[in-house]
C-alpha cells in the first residue's frame, strides 16, 4: 500500500530529525560521564538556557538569528565552565575529607543546580512560553514525500554538522586526544603530563555549549518555558545508558535509534505512552546488559 510506505518514510525521517537533536544533547552528557563517572542532572537546564539565549538575543536584542546560534553556544559554554569551576572541582582536586562518596555529591549538587536554574529563570524571565524566530521564514517545504518547515530542515543540517564536527574534534584534535586519555586513565594521563583539571574544564564547557545549541535550534519548534529541559534531559540519560555509558559513537547511534523508535512506536504501539518506551528500554537494558548496547564491561579505576 503506497500510503503506508509514505507514512513509514515520514516516520523514519521524523525520527532521525528528533534523534539528531537528542544526539547533540547526549554527546555532552556522555563526555562528562566518560570522564568523571558522574551524571550531570542539570544538563537539561543547559539546553533550556540555550533556547532562551537564542530567543532573547533575537527578540530582545534584535540580533540576527544566525548570530543567535553562536550566542547560545557561548552562553551554554560559559554556564558549563562555571559549573565545573565552582561545583565539580572538589571531585578531583584532592578534597581529602569526604564524609560521603563523590557519586552522591555529584547527584545532589547537580540536582540542586537544576532546581536553582529552573526557578531562577522562572523568576527573572517569567513562566510564559516564548517561541524563537526561525532561521529562515519558510513555513513549509516538500522534499519528496517529506514535509517540513524551512527552519527544521536547516536546524537538522546544523545539528548533524555539529555532531560530526564534535566527533572529529574528539578523535583527532590535541585536546580531544587528551580528553580520551584522561577518560581512559586519569592517573596515567597525569603521569604523561596531561592536565586533567583543564581537560575536565574543556569537557564541561563543550557539554554546556552543545546542549545549549540543541536548545537554540529547537527554540522555534518548541515553546520554551523554564522547565523545558527536564524532558530532553531524561531522554539523554536514557541515551547515555543505552549507548554504553561514555561511548560517543554509542550515544549517537542510541540517539537516532530512540528518535526512530519513538516515532514508529507512537503510531504502531500507542501514542499515549510513547515517552515511556525509551524509559522502559532503559530498565530492560539495566536488567540484561548494564554495560549498554555499545559499551565494554565496566573498567574499575
Amino acid at each position: 500500500m503506497p500510503g503506508q510506505r509514505v507514512l513509514n518514510i515520514d516516520l523514519f525521517v521524523n525520527g532521525l530529525i528528533m534523534g539528531s537533536f537528542y544526539a547533540l544533547m547526549a554527546i555532552g552528557l556522555t563526555l562528562i560521564f566518560g570522564l568523571l563517572r558522574i551524571v550531570n542532572f542539570a544538563h537539561g537546564e543547559f539546553y533550556m538556557i540555550g533556547a532562551y539565549a537564542y530567543t532573547l538575543a533575537a527578540l530582545k536584542l534584535g540580533l540576527s538569528v544566525w548570530l543567535g546560534l553562536p550566542v547560545a553556544f557561548a552562553v551554554g559554554g560559559i554556564v558549563g565552565w562555571l559549573t565545573e569551576r565552582t561545583l565539580m572541582r572538589p571531585l578531583y582536586a584532592g578534597y581529602a575529607s569526604w564524609g560521603l562518596m563523590k557519586d552522591e555529591y555529584a547527584v545532589v549538587v547537580t540536582f540542586a543546580l537544576s532546581l536553582l536554574l529552573i526557578n531562577l529563570v522562572d523568576k527573572v524571565i517569567g513562566p510564559y512560553a516564548v517561541r524563537g524566530p526561525g532561521l529562515v521564514d519558510i513555513p513549509r517545504i516538500a522534499l519528496g514525500p517529506v514535509m517540513l518547515t524551512g527552519h527544521k530542515l536547516i536546524a537538522t543540517i546544523v545539528a548533524f554538522a555539529m555532531i560530526i564536527a564534535t566527533a572529529l574534534f574528539i578523535r583527532y584534535s590535541l585536546w580531544g586526544r587528551q580528553i580520551r586519555a584522561v577518560a581512559q586513565n586519569r592517573l596515567g594521563a597525569s603521569l604523561a603530563g596531561i592536565d586533567a583539571t583543564k581537560t575536565s574544564s574543556i569537557i564541561f564547557t563543550l557539554s554546556g555549549a552543545l546542549a545549549a545549541l540543541s536548545g537554540a535550534l529547537l527554540a522555534p519548534i518548541i515553546n520554551t518555558t523554564p522547565d523545558v529541559g527536564s524532558f530532553p534531559a531524561i531522554k539523554s540519560y536514557v541515551i547515555v545508558v543505552l549507548g554504553g555509558m561514555g561511548s560517543i559513537p554509542g550515544s549517537i547511534v542510541a540517539s537516532l535509534l530512540l528518535g526512530v523508535l519513538e516515532s514508529f512506536g507512537a503510531v504502531y504501539i500507542s501514542y499515549d505512552y510513547r515517552d515511556a518506551f525509551g524509559l522502559a528500554i532503559l530498565i530492560l537494558v539495566l536488567l540484561l546488559r548494564p554495560q549498554g548496547l555499545f559499551g565494554e564491561k565496566g573498567r574499575e579505576v
Binding site: 500510503g3 503506508q4 509514505v6 507514512l7 515520514d10 516516520l11 521524523n14 528528533m18 514535509m147 529547537l218 519548534i221 518548541i222 523545558v228 524532558f231 519513538e262 516515532s263 514508529f264 507512537a266 503510531v267 501514542y271 499515549d272 510513547r274 515517552d275
Partner: peptide, 19 residues
C-alpha cells in the same frame, strides 16, 4: 488522540492523517 502537554514533537500523531 491524547497528546502529552509536556511533549514537543507531535508529528507522529499527525502524519497518519496525511494519508
Amino acid at each position: 488522540e491524547t497528546l502529552d502537554r509536556a511533549g514537543k514533537d507531535f508529528t507522529p500523531a499527525i502524519l497518519p492523517l496525511r494519508a
